[in-house]
Write a protein that binds this DNA or RNA. Sequence first.
DNA 1: CTGAAAGCGCTTACAG
DNA 2: CTGAAAGCGCTTACAG
Lengths: 331, 331
Amino acid sequence: MATMKDVAKLACVDISTVSRALNDTAYVHPETRERIFAAVKELSYQPNVLAQGLKKGKRHTIGVVLPRLHMAIFSEIMQGIEKEARKYNYATLICNTEDDPEIEKESLSRLRNGFVDGIIIAGTGRNIRLLHDIKASGISVAQIVRDQDTSVSSVIANYEACGYEGTKFLARKGCKEIGLINGNTHLAPYRDRYKGYKAALKELNLKENYNTSLEPSNTFEYGYNCAKKLLENNEKLDAIMVSVDIQGIGAMRAIKEKKLRVPDDIRLMSLTGHTVGSMLETTMTALEIPAHEMGEKVAKMIIEDIEAPSDKKPSAQHLTFNASLVEREST
Amino acid sequence: MATMKDVAKLACVDISTVSRALNDTAYVHPETRERIFAAVKELSYQPNVLAQGLKKGKRHTIGVVLPRLHMAIFSEIMQGIEKEARKYNYATLICNTEDDPEIEKESLSRLRNGFVDGIIIAGTGRNIRLLHDIKASGISVAQIVRDQDTSVSSVIANYEACGYEGTKFLARKGCKEIGLINGNTHLAPYRDRYKGYKAALKELNLKENYNTSLEPSNTFEYGYNCAKKLLENNEKLDAIMVSVDIQGIGAMRAIKEKKLRVPDDIRLMSLTGHTVGSMLETTMTALEIPAHEMGEKVAKMIIEDIEAPSDKKPSAQHLTFNASLVEREST
DNA sequence: CTGAAAGCGCTTACAG
DNA sequence: CTGAAAGCGCTTACAG
């Protein structure tokens, strides 16, 4: 690979002049400029990003730490992040943690050391101190979906409202025994959905049908197992709310194996739908969250933070999106 | 952030000694060593990866260029790549191109400039020259799923066999009018599936039912639209093979809207299944490809290439995996 | 066993 | 308008 030195030699100028011409950071005589660009072309010179980053202390790269990509809302959010990042000429580096705090820790450690200017995270909540360290060391941080820490900016959906409105909606449909398949309530979204569910049940004077399991909750199997238990525990159950679409697919399977019909015997809805729900054989009613838009916003937020001069970084912002109810066949 | 200089000062040694102690690259007196590690701890020093990379010319990072993450087999392959990369202490950087040659070009250009030591790509086939340039410049390259270029190592599944065996299987089930929903035949997997399909039809003395559309083929909508056309064009159609699971979900929807039943009226199967197929309401028969394993292999392949001394890089290897038939409800 | 020094490929004050 | 030089944070021959 040609270096700036080679270009300088070929163009018969100093390397500093090449730098200035290329970065357009000072006036360079048109002729010199032309010679330089000719040399660049001839050598098909490409600047070394490492060296630039070393000098400027900036990588123009955002790290995104996510618990899951496959069949989860995070890959849709990611599309939004990438689109926005590309607009500002930032690259994105995705780390997939599988919701394992150890992998998360390792990913964060790796990212902090010169890899990125900012980190967007949907975290396990187990590495908050590390995250603070990272922020203190000058790397911008923002949370997506899971706001584990109020001192760090975040973009989330209103999960409590999802739990509340979902329950109310099913009650209006005549359901009396509404189950909720949730996940680890240490994570903000699960905690909040549960809160909303309980609040609605109280107003409606209904009782709780709740089941949980020890497995990772963002999976098909989890939805399947929890649905099975809910159905066994209460034979009058007439509705199941799942936290995320993928659980709903598992629940659908469990319901079918019990020879029950959706929606006639059991109504089924997802509390944080994304595009999957509309594609299923029995399409799924859902409170859909604007994943793409949320991704764009959090990317914009972190880029603004990165590019703000260090003496006046914006203070932590928290952006909450509302979900919108989309009725489909499953209710 | 503390630098190596700070550590050296605190430990009262030269920075070169710190470097040696930390990298274990030469004998350092135990006491000195201890002082250095104490200083590292005290300052919570973290080496700057940029600077290391600049000096050593290595980033310990692999770029992965994929056409799609959401609901596609690529996120499963990615899991395998990440697992293997982590084992060798490599980071992975994912670029999502949405199968757009321009985005792909941009991603590749970005990666080549000091970002990564190697690139794994499932490409559009439109940037082969650029890929050659990149390889020539000393960055390792490997292809996954799509082997557009025999001079570059690859890990793929035997798509021709998939097309062939799928067709034979459906014929054994008694199907006479077997449709194929495919995709852009400039891409090797689509081209090969089609080849296998035609070969089997010829042996069986059956005629082709083939439809294609101009949209990106890796989507639900594509499967839906093509299935609809196939059903309209031939009312005796008794089977549909889709190239990928997500198309199958769309096809299922189209079949259902026609008031036809799967598998009684129409048998449906996917030619490159991954985990989605087993989770659907009507589970989908598929030729399953070992996505996770393929990811691991391609990661291993590229890491070996990266770490080989530049005078004896291994020559291009091509690894082909077989799919295995998993019968489920849809046939 | 350890230090002084050069160098990786750039950027950016400082002169002129 | 352009060059010479220092420096970003490391690694690694070269001495001793």
